[in-house]
């Protein structure tokens, strides 16, 4: 059995986001790139399952749709423990085209389980995982927060309103995972960092797809307004300001 983990290359979550040329694209100057946190959780759990599977899961691969600039992020995934990697050499556009590329590889290489983070921390579309399943005509389970692999039997828990649902599922399928799937993302060991250089990254050209959507522009939230301190005794002024300035009353 083989697992494929989708890896998105995103700005470090502490990055101060700026846009350039008329708010149309992200200003990547000085941005530090990392593995999308949900994908990192997924990769960690995939590796744990492989290690506990007594050889039933033979390998964990990662896949990224991106230009050569994403390779440090891919190598980080290899350092964490993935066995090999695919990079589809193109600038990622919308979720549809990204999913089409991943589905193509997953299908051709016969992957049994595909992990996708519930969303990417940059564009938050949250669509790639289910689109991959659709392209491949296989099942997908969303909001997976627990993944157990017992002698080939797979039991998932997914978050539902006010509780959890337990699901039994047959391969192949896509698991769309969220926080809780592992305790902490794995920190790469020194040995892993050295080994990463020797693990293969298979680079391939994209299959032709047409993007269904296009981002026109971005907006950043308005800057936080100054805090106004009102004396605790002065409720009249508070009510007045909530009515006239904050317009919540």
């Amino acid at each position: 059995m083989k697992i494929l983990v989708c890896i998105s290359n995103v700005p470090d979550t502490t990055t101060k986001i700026k846009f350039d040329d008329g708010m149309k694209s992200l200003d990547t100057n000085g941005v530090q790139w990392v593995i999308n946190p949900w994908d990192e959780f997924a990769l960690t759990r995939a590796l744990e399952i492989k290690e506990q599977s007594s050889g039933k899961i033979e390998k964990v691969s990662v896949i990224n749709v991106g230009t050569v600039s994403t390779e440090p992020t891919i190598r980080k995934a290899l350092a964490i423990g993935a066995d090999d990697a695919f990079r589809i050499d193109c600038e990622p556009s919308d979720s549809y085209t990204i999913a089409a590329q991943i589905a193509e590889v997953a299908k051709n290489e016969n992957y049994d389980i595909i992990f996708a983070g519930i969303e990417s921390s940059d564009f938050n579309a949250g669509a790639v995982g289910s689109m991959i399943a659709e392209f491949m005509d296989i099942a997908s389970v969303s909001s997976v927060s627990s993944f157990e692999f017992n002698n080939g039997d797979i039991t998932l828990k997914r978050e539902i309103d006010g509780g959890k649902e337990t699901v039994k599922i047959q391969t192949p399928f896509v698991a769309i995972v969220q926080k809780g799937i592992c305790i902490n993302p794995r920190i790469p060991a020194m040995r892993g960092i050295m080994m990463a250089k020797t693990k293969p990254i298979k680079v391939s050209s994209p299959v032709s797809t047409e993007a269904l959507s296009e981002a026109l522009s971005f907006e950043v939230p308005p800057p936080k307004a100054d805090c106004k301190m009102i004396d605790a005794e002065n409720t009249d002024e508070l009510i007045e300001l909530l009515h006239s300035e904050a317009k919540v009353l």
Binding site: P72, K76, I187, P188, I193
Partner: peptide, 17 residues
């Protein structure tokens, strides 16, 4: 190098966590 930066980051992540 990329490896040196990765080790620096791994040590930082470990220390903070």
């Amino acid at each position: 190098t990329e490896e040196q930066l990765m080790i620096q980051q791994a040590a930082r992540d470990f220390a903070e966590r």
